[in-house]
Each structure stands twice: as structure tokens, then as C-alpha cells.
Design a protein around this nucleic acid. Structure first.
Length: 435
RNA sequence: GGGCUCGUAGUGAAGUUGGCCUAUCACGCCUCCCUGUCACGGAGGAGAUCGCCGGUUCGAAUCCGGUCGGGCCCGCCA
């Protein structure tokens, strides 16, 4: 029977067999320490028998083996336990020398990211690299659990689409049996249509953006956490995002503290409701503080996003902040303008530790108005990309809204990684399509 | 798409005002020694024509031009 490395403490004094990968060997002559990695962590075995040690001659880190012996408590062993009187069985001998060292922290310097990703399949075996994705897995679980608790239904929407629809970001085009198809850059219309069915829905799935961006916060494929719900207003949306962020944070520091410490992550300060600042207010304060002139601009500069997060952290007691009152002139056709203030979109962006991690808005649910807004941008209501969306609006939609949040950006910011790609198992960007 | 910047053994770095470079160091790898290591230690060894092409020069890792491949910032966005 197999014992996991983390269970060894429960087997002190007894015979046990662990199975895993050779993670490190240290030969001291008469005694040899080998470190074994399995899914639960790493453990040390002390091999004294020369014949057993010989079995590992010529074999590299990564060799798959079974280690049997007596579990012994010893203060000198890492974790307080190790395996003695060892018998080794090599399951899969590995002779390939790993191109990178996985028992030492891998460089995450920007200049070395190419190497990091080139040897990703091996580098991820490092417990430190794994930690990033254990954390990401926990983030997804926390969000999923929270939303389900709020009666949201998890849905899956198609990623192969008939045509570009949402507008904004560039889309990937591909051949679809002789017709042109596109890869979904957002589940936007589908999640809105499903509000008419389930009232509250969410999806955690990849989206594709053909933007030629080359920055530390962009990828061409990323995981989007999308939620959409009906019978609500923008304040409900802010509260939902506040609750999600706080829940994820609490959850992470409860269940992933070891992994977070591995990266020196600090728990973010987040109030019950994340504070809001209007775009005009941010422009004003930023311009006054820095001498830069951004007043009147329709968007925040990246530098302003970083600055306002610093400001919110110091002055508002929050490491996240909502940006409100976006100019209506930049609204998408399905967005809703503010009641009584049509010059502003009913939209919010959520900034966290210097970057935009989510965008949310109220959607225009009135069929005649959204139809007008579509035609105003030259959209054809008969286009298959719009037709069914409009059909759903016409069939009866309550006031509704939602958000899209970048999972990798969220992971990056919780951990403190410099580049969003470090929070992706196999990042896709303008010049990386493999592994 | 625009601007800036980098490219030296498997990995990470030093050298880059031209000659002392027959290219240095660390990790990894190979051989040997080592009974408490945990970045084990010690002795020895293999491994790079300095991204590629061309030029300047008596002489180029180093200067110039081109090219390929990275990275960072901006635009755009999650």
C-alpha cells in the first residue's frame, strides 16, 4: 500500500512505502539522503546500503521510484520524519539530464521568462512553481463556491462563434468547414442571454484576444471569470465583487498559507465594501499629485492605475478600488448609461494592486434602446452575432449586469508575481504558441 | 503597431572604452573521497567557436551594418 509523504508522521515506527519522483540525492559516502516528491510534498529517505544506492547510479532527478522502509522520527530530518532501512525499486529510470534545476527556485526575472516557459513541463515540478497553481486552483474553488452559494448557476458557453460580435478587442479568425468562424473573446452575449433563463449565471473559461499586446499583463488566451445576474443595480454588482475578493482572500490565507509564504505573499487589506472613485476624481488627484495632466482623458493610464491603488491603500484602507463614471462616449452598445446622467456609462472597473482585474457594468436590457444603440454603431440586427442576443432581449430581460475578471491577473496580484504569464501554466502570447 | 533594451557551456551570471580571452565563475553533469546532509563538503574532469550573416582592423565576445529571437514600456484590454 502506498503512503503519501505528508502522511509519514502518522506511520512512525511502522513499515511504509512511498512512491514518487527522485527530487534530490545527497551522497555522503556511507550514507545517502534521497528526497522523494509526490503530489503531497517531499520527504527524505536515508539509505545506508551501498547496493541500494547503486541502483540510482546514472539516474537523474525525475526518476520514478518506490521507497520502502521504516518510518523514523528524527529531529535531524526535515519535517521530523524520514524513512530508514530503505529498499528502492526503480519504476521508471530517467537518464535525461534536466535542462533546469527543479530543486532550486527557478528564475522569474523578466529576461529569463523565455527559459522558464520553454522548459515549463519540467519546471512546474518544482514545489514552488506548483504553489502558484495550487493557489489558482483554490481561487477558482472559492469563487465557484461563493457564487453557487449566492444561487448562481455555472454554465459553459461556446467558444466557436459565427462572427465577431462584442466589438473592442481583436478576434482570432479561423476556417470552419469553408466558412469563417471566430474564437470567443468573451462569453458576454451568452451569459446575458442566460440571465433570461437562470437569472444568475457564471462561467470560468478561456477567452481569446488577438491583440498584439506585449506587456506584463496581457495574453492572447486567458481564463475569464464571468458572472451575470438580473434584478440588480450597480451597487449590487460592487458588493458582489467586494464579497468575492474578500472571500477569495480569506480562503487563500486559510487553506494555502504555505504556498503563499513560498512567494512571500501578503494578505491584502480589503474592507467590506471596496471604495469607489470616479474617473474624474482620479484624474484630478493624480494630476495634482504628479504634475501630469490627465484631466479630461477618457481612460486611466497604466501609471494612474498604479497610483490610485497606492492612494486607496494609504487613504482609503483598501488595496482595491472601483473606478466609476466612465464616459458614455466609449460605451459598448450593450452597456447602459446611468439613469439621470446619460453622459456616463453605468460601468465600473476593479483595480487591485495596480492593475485592472475586472470590468463590470449594467447592461441595457430594454429591447428598443439596445436596438438603437446597436444601430448607432452600424451593427446589423440580422447578423447572426446579434440576432439571437436581440431575440433574448425582446423575450423579456430584467435589469441586469455582471463582470468579467482575469483569473491569471487575480492570481498574479494575490501572489505578487511580476508578469501575468507566470500565473499561466502554458502562457499564450503574441510570439508563444508552445508548449 | 510605436519606443527602449537584451542575446556568452544544459542553467544563471562576469567580461563588452578591441589585444592580458587559449573566454571567467556558480549550479548542474561524469569519476573518486566522505556516516546526518538538507544550497552538504573535498579532489579531479567533460562541456561555449560568445544568437546568426557580413563589414572595419594586424587583431573582434567587445566596434559598425543587417538579420533572427527574447524582454520592458506605451496603445488596447481581464
Amino acid at each position: 500500500m502506498r503512503t503519501l509523504t505528508r502522511q509519514l508522521t502518522e506511520h512512525v515506527g511502522k513499515q511504509a512505502t512511498i512512491k514518487g519522483w527522485l527530487h534530490k540525492k545527497r551522497l555522503l559516502g556511507g550514507l545517502t539522503f534521497i528526497v522523494i516528491r509526490d503530489r503531497s510534498g517531499i520527504a527524505q529517505a536515508l539509505v545506508k546500503d551501498k547496493g541500494e544506492v547503486e541502483k540510482l547510479r546514472g539516474l537523474q532527478i525525475g526518476t520514478v521510484l518506490e521507497v520502502s522502509g521504516v518510518v523514523a522520527a528524527d529531529d535531524r530530518a526535515p519535517g521530523g520524519v524520514e524513512i530508514h532501512e530503505v529498499g528502492l525499486k526503480v519504476d521508471v529510470p530517467v537518464e535525461m539530464e534536466p535542462p533546469i534545476e527543479i530543486d532550486k527556485p527557478l528564475s522569474h526575472e523578466s529576461d529569463n521568462l523565455d527559459t522558464l516557459f520553454e522548459y515549463r513541463v519540467i519546471g512546474l515540478r518544482s514545489p514552488r512553481e506548483q504553489a502558484v497553481f495550487k493557489i489558482q486552483s483554490e481561487i477558482q474553488r472559492a469563487i465557484r463556491e461563493y457564487l453557487r452559494g449566492q444561487d448562481f448557476t455555472e454554465i459553459r458557453t461556446p467558444k466557436l462563434l459565427a462572427a465577431a460580435t462584442e466589438g473592442g478587442a481583436e478576434v482570432f479568425k479561423m476556417d470552419y468547414f469553408g466558412k469563417e468562424a471566430t474564437l470567443a473573446q468573451s462569453p458576454q452575449f451568452y451569459k446575458q442571454m442566460m440571465v433570461g433563463v437562470f437569472e444568475r449565471v457564471f462561467e470560468i473559461a478561456p477567452v481569446y484576444r488577438a491583440e498584439p499586446s506585449a506587456t506584463t499583463r496581457h495574453m492572447t488566451e486567458y481564463i475569464s471569470v464571468d458572472a451575470e445576474f438580473g434584478f440588480m443595480d450597480i451597487e449590487d454588482l460592487k458588493q458582489l465583487l467586494s464579497d468575492i475578493l474578500r472571500n477569495v482572500s480569506d480562503d487563500l490565507w486559510q487553506y494555502c498559507e504555505g504556498q503563499l509564504n513560498e512567494w512571500g505573499a501578503t494578505k491584502p487589506v480589503l474592507p467590506e465594501t471596496i471604495p469607489s472613485m470616479s474617473m474624474a476624481e482620479i484624474h484630478e488627484k493624480y494630476s495634482a499629485a504628479t504634475g501630469e495632466k490627465t484631466i479630461g482623458e477618457k481612460d486611466l493610464r497604466p501609471e494612474e492605475e498604479r497610483w490610485v491603488c497606492e492612494y486607496a491603500s494609504k487613504e482609503l484602507g483598501s488595496e482595491a478600488v472601483f473606478v466609476t463614471d466612465w464616459p458614455a462616449s466609449d460605451m459598448k452598445f450593450y452597456h447602459k448609461a446611468q439613469d439621470g446622467k446619460p453622459e456616463f456609462a453605468d460601468r465600473i472597473d476593479l483595480l487591485f494592486r495596480g492593475v485592472e482585474i475586472a470590468t463590470g457594468s449594467m447592461r441595457e436590457h430594454r429591447y428598443d434602446v439596445v436596438m438603437k444603440q446597436l444601430q448607432a454603431i452600424g451593427g446589423n440586427p440580422e447578423d447572426p452575432g446579434f440576432r439571437y442576443f436581440l431575440m433574448a432581449m425582446q423575450a423579456g430581460m430584467p435589469s441586469h449586469g455582471g463582470f468579467g475578471m482575469g483569473l491569471e491577473r487575480l492570481t498574479q496580484k494575490f501572489i505578487g508575481l511580476g508578469n501575468v504569464k507566470e500565473a499561466s501554466l502554458f502562457p499564450r502570447d503574441i510570439n508563444r504558441l508552445a508548449p
